[in-house]
Simulated assay, not measured.
Amino acid sequence: MATRKLFSVLFLQLIMFVVLLLVLNPAYAHESLKVGFYEKSCPEAEAIVKKVMVETLSKAPTLAAPLIRMHFHDCFVRGCDGSVLLRSSTNQAEKDFVSNLNLRGFQIIDRVKSALEKACPGVVSCADILALVARDATATIKGPSWEVETGRKDGRVSSEIEAHENLLPPTANITRLIRSFQERGLSIKDLAVLSGAHTVGTSHCYSFNDRLYNFTGKGDTDPNMDPNYIKRLKKKCKPGDNTTLVEMNPGNFKTFDEDYYTLVAKRRGLFQSDAALLDNAETKSYVKLQAATGGSTFFDDFGVSMVKMGRIGVLTGKAGEIRKQCSKVNK
């Protein structure tokens, strides 16, 4: 009897430990997310976001790319908690880190938030707004659409140092890229798929100028870049150029399509991190497949990978808050 009682107590304690582990481990927080989270609390939420995005991008289509990337940059630092939107009086928030200085469209996020607060005050989080805006920005410029899981709460911390530690630089090699994705529960395929977002937008010359003028510190060019492409880029970007913008997808940088993979396959990816996709068998295979088939699976894959990315480190339930303004925490 004593042995059976002891076993029952130990078994109960084990169950309680497992339950506590599931509750406290943020890896399971995404299970609280669901499609249609605001169906009852704010039924027009997604329609409101879409309306603002369609109106905005009809006038300023170049805002689509930075708005899509804003969701990426948010999720890779502290998880998808809207922390990239917070301002700091001392310029030490995520948005103050050099890689985030090129992000634009914060005023659009504020516009969406204002419209949602007017319709249903204190209900829709800024973190969810970022996820919805990324989807609608993609779809509005002829890219894929997907069902967005919602139910995130907003974080209260934003650190420039953490952005520096977690955001991937354009010089990242394939080893670093894969490790960063896997640390966040994303696969090698997700890396190849989400890199395809580079099919839209622009970049400053300083993000890749070393590939043109000083790749190994000896005044040389990157041997992994098409020499003809290097010549074209040198006409736009002079040594030390910190202001000129170059199209990520020359001639078609406002439309979301599969052209990125054609460019990478031809060694015309703008960043070292783009060229790095040819240094791994799985990512190279994906690049070659999309380039050869006109992006046969890219749109579907992109939606799947975006949903996975949107689950990284989310705050749900009693964690976090619903900010009244996306740029600052509630008092």
Rank of each mutant, 00 (worst) to 15 (best):
R152N: 06
K266R: 14
N209I: 08
V54E: 05
K331L: 05
Y206I: 12
K331E: 04
S58V: 11
H198R: 11
A47L: 09
K59Q: 09
V329R: 01
L186H: 01
L22T: 09
Y213Q: 06
A192T: 00
E160I: 14
C42I: 07
E258K: 11
I129Y: 08
E117G: 02
P66E: 08
N224D: 11
Q13I: 14
S195E: 13
V287Q: 01
A119I: 09
V193W: 08
A127L: 02
K235C: 07
M16T: 14
L86T: 02
M1P: 05
I109L: 01
S99F: 15
M53C: 06
D128A: 05
R268T: 12
N91M: 04
L33I: 01
N280W: 13
P227S: 05
K113N: 14
R135M: 00
M248Q: 15
R323C: 03
T262K: 15
K266N: 14
V19Q: 14
I108T: 11
E165R: 13
T56A: 07
G82H: 02
S83G: 12
T56L: 08
N214D: 08
V329M: 00
E321S: 15
V35T: 07
N214Q: 10
A291S: 07
V124W: 00
N280G: 07
I188K: 10
K59N: 13
D241C: 01
F256T: 04
L177C: 13
V329A: 03
G269S: 12
F97Q: 10
A197Y: 08
T56D: 07
S327T: 10
N102W: 14
L6A: 13
V329D: 02
F271W: 06
S8F: 13
K5E: 01
K324C: 06
H30A: 15
D241R: 13
T199R: 11
L22I: 14
I174L: 00
L289A: 14
L167H: 02
L278M: 08
I230L: 12
G217R: 00
D96S: 09
A131D: 05
G303Q: 01
C80E: 10
P43W: 03
L57S: 00
C75V: 00
Q290E: 11
V329C: 01
G251T: 12
R69T: 15
V98M: 15
S41V: 08
E165N: 12
N249G: 09
T140K: 03
I178F: 04
A163W: 06
N25Q: 11
D222W: 12
G105N: 04
S285C: 06
V124K: 09
L14N: 11
L6W: 11
K254C: 08
N330L: 02
